[in-house]
Amino acid sequence: MDFQLTEDQRALRSGVRELLAGRFGREALRALADAPEPPALDRELWRDLGVAGFFALRLPERDGGVGLGLPEAVLAFEEAGRALLPGPLVATHLAAGEVEGAATGDTVVTAVDSSGLVPWLDASDVVRGDAAGAVPIRSVDPLTPLHRAPAGAPDPLATLLTAAEQLGSAARSCETAVRYARERTQFGQPIGAFQAVKHLCAQMLVRTELARSAVYAAAVTADPAEIRAAALLADEAAVQGARDCLQVHGGMGFTWEADVHLYLKRAWLRAELGPSAGAVEEEWAAAL
């Protein structure tokens, strides 16, 4: 047993992190969030991701893919979650090898989730599942247009990759909170020296690290029940982490200008995708 990242996996993670920092940094994020019109999908970014192998990561090399496995895909999606990268990333990744052009980023693919939500329907070239009669809703997440349709088929791999994004989001919220807590002073000291703030941050890390082992283990076993359990913990870590991060930011946390709300809203959205917490708890109770 060696349940730690390998050298190659570490390298992959930092590679994806660098790529995303360069191609979708804070400025790009803010430009999208602050634009008056609904967000458009950056096709060029999409193709860059394709060239970098983001979508073809798990395709065999003989089919033009990178030939890696689920654990590597999870690490890449964790980074996407950290960077709050927009677009139907999961559906396009899962369509690689099945839908022409998905692997290279030339075709944008979305899917009808088992919750009935369809992200980025208008911007996508292909939709998997039955989106006939899908109606647009006013999405709470300013960076993700949404439609509602009859529920699609559940897909454990989609649940796993979404959980990986939640994990990245949780880790990022914790880091953001810690950075702010070290910079902001009140009563003559950094607010991070106050235990009430410190303990919020500590709990954020605890939730994140528990979710991390669960998500990584689920990527290794690819067991559908374990995937759903990991998603439950990752949802909690991402949503509660963003909430706590907001609290640490005080009034600043309630503004449009701070990024905190963008993380919270996306975390809410991802938590709705896939099975509900109640269904997963019932499943794990029945297994006892």
């Binding site: 690290e209 528990l210 669960a214 990584y216 359990a229 990991a230 006892l288």
Partner: peptide
């Protein structure tokens, strides 16, 4: 659901243990 939730919790704690041990 509370029992199911604890089942999720303890299996994740086992994974965390394996992580720490590794």
């Amino acid at each position: 659901r509370r029992l199911g939730r604890l089942n999720v919790e303890f299996s994740a704690l086992w994974r965390l243990t394996q992580w720490n041990v590794s």
